[in-house]
Structure formats: structure tokens, C-alpha cells
């Protein structure tokens, strides 16, 4: 069986895997990081979104061996200790989740949207950017609100931006 090594949430990991292991299976079953979820088998629901080398990908549509040497960020690596990341806090403040199952993928996607589209996000942009994330509970209304609020909060939270503003 091949050996795969990567960095997950800042920690180097190394394990022997069946070559068929998907990245999401590696995270969930091997590393026991169960915050990343599986909601479909056609790469559509987005419950499994994680960041690989800084960009959002569907971890159900990538082999673990393909993440060799990669930096992987999962939902478990987003908060700073007990302090929620501003995007996590925005989901909580705006009731952007109900059953919580799609939420990790939504938050990882939201962070990626902010990376690409900045901190001022209008309703339409957010909805279009959520093309690859399904939620069955919220009707998306409060998810959209959460992401807009979280993006704005991240602007205030971002040390680089604060320095630039000074």
C-alpha cells in the first residue's frame, strides 16, 4: 500500500493507505477528523470541501495520494483555540446553520470566496459562488447573510489589511 504524507491543519501526518482512499476518507477514517462530511457521491453537495494548498476543493473527488506533500486545511483547523474564526462566528450570529451537516463545507467555501472576491460581497455573488454547496435546512437565506457578515468581519480581523490601512 502506498504511503502518503501531508500537512493537515499545520500538523505533519503520514500513513499507509489503500490507493483507492479518497482524501475525505483519509481525513475522516484515518485521521479521525470527522468534521469534513460526505453528503453525495456526484461531487455536488460540497459537505466535503476542504482547502488544499490554499484553495477550496471537494475532498470526495480527490485521492488521498494526490494530496502528497500538500497543505490541507479542514474545518477543525479554522478556529484559533476556543475563539471562533470570524466566519464561524458569523454563521452562529446569523443562524446560518440548522442541522450542521453542510456547515463545515459551507464555511470552508465561504473562506475561499473571501479569498477570491474580497470582503464586500453582494447577495447575488454569494449565491452564485454557492453553486457547489447544497443545504436542505436553511433555504440559504441565512447562509448568504452569514457569509456577507463574516466577510466583512474578516476585513476587520485581517492584520495585513489593518496594517495597510494604517
Amino acid at each position: 500500500m502506498p504511503v502518503v504524507s501531508m500537512t493537515v491543519n499545520g500538523n505533519p501526518v503520514r500513513a499507509e493507505v489503500d490507493v483507492r482512499t479518497l482524501l475525505v476518507q483519509f481525513l475522516r477514517e484515518t485521521l479521525r477528523l470527522t468534521g469534513t462530511h460526505v453528503g453525495c457521491d456526484t461531487s455536488q453537495c460540497g459537505a466535503c470541501v476542504v482547502h488544499v494548498n490554499g484553495v477550496a476543493v471537494k475532498s470526495c473527488t480527490m485521492l488521498a495520494v494526490q494530496a502528497e506533500g500538500a497543505e490541507v486545511l479542514t474545518i477543525e483547523g479554522v478556529a484559533r483555540g476556543d475563539a471562533l474564526h470570524p466566519m464561524q462566528e458569523a454563521f452562529r450570529q446569523n443562524h446560518g446553520l440548522q442541522c450542521g451537516y453542510c456547515t463545515p463545507g459551507m464555511i470552508m467555501t465561504a473562506l475561499d470566496i473571501v479569498r477570491r472576491k474580497g470582503h464586500e460581497l453582494d447577495d447575488r455573488t454569494i449565491r452564485e459562488e454557492l453553486e457547489g454547496n447544497l443545504c436542505r435546512c436553511t433555504g440559504y437565506h441565512n447562509i448568504v447573510k452569514s457569509i456577507a457578515a463574516g466577510a466583512r468581519a474578516m476585513a476587520g480581523d485581517d492584520p495585513a489589511r489593518q496594517q495597510a490601512a494604517e
Binding site: 470527522t34 460526505v38 477543525e76 462566528e89 450542521g100
Partner: peptide, 21 residues
């Protein structure tokens, strides 16, 4: 009131059936 359950869900610490080992 903001939900008590949300902390575990937004941090990936929910515990669903498939998470049990």
C-alpha cells in the same frame, strides 16, 4: 438567542452517526 449547539457544528465537532468509530 444564538444557538448553544452551534459551537460544535461550526468547528467540525458535531457527532453524527457516521462519525462514530
Amino acid at each position: 438567542v444564538r444557538r448553544k449547539e452551534d459551537f460544535r457544528f461550526v468547528t467540525g465537532n458535531g457527532r453524527y452517526t457516521a462519525d462514530i468509530d
